[in-house]
């Protein structure tokens, strides 16, 4: 789990790189970190290219992160979902809640241009 601010294109966008698994064991860590990241920005891109597995508690955490970002007038966009992770998102209907992009840079650009997906 890595966090960096991308301001190359203007607005501060928090890019979170998720790797490995997001599950019951480490989702609290993500939840807590997200609260501190919210101090810096409310616009997020979760780069999931290295994310191999997500379970329902991980999913719940990401959805709650989205809710918090929206509460702060921001957004949380997902990028580079592996087919397996996107199957879990579709299964649980979570895919309907997020804007999903094929890669992180497209997700970042969408904040600038305002395009949706």
């Amino acid at each position: 789990m890595k966090f960096q601010i991308d301001s190359s294109s203007g607005p501060h966008i928090g890019i979170v790189t998720l790797t490995g698994r997001v599950d019951a064991r480490n989702c609290t860590e993500l939840q807590n970190s997200f609260m501190s990241w919210l101090m810096d920005t409310s616009r997020f891109v979760f780069d999931c290219s290295g994310l191999e597995f997500i379970d329902s508690s991980g999913l719940g955490t990401i959805v709650s992160c989205l809710r918090k970002a929206l509460d702060h007038n921001g957004d949380l966009k997902l990028a580079a979902l592996s087919p397996k992770v996107s199957m879990v998102l579709e299964l649980t209907k979570a895919s309907k809640l997020f804007s999903i992009f094929p890669d992180a840079s497209e997700a970042v650009n969408s904040y600038v241009t305002g395009t949706k997906e």
């Binding site: 599950d23 379970d55 508690s57 087919p83 199957m87």
Partner: peptide, 19 residues
């Protein structure tokens, strides 16, 4: 397990309340 027949990707759920 959940399989996408088109891509043949397979996910094994660890969460018994899902699948």
């Amino acid at each position: 397990t959940l399989v996408d027949p088109e891509t043949a990707f397979l996910v094994s759920m660890e969460d018994p309340h899902l699948l």
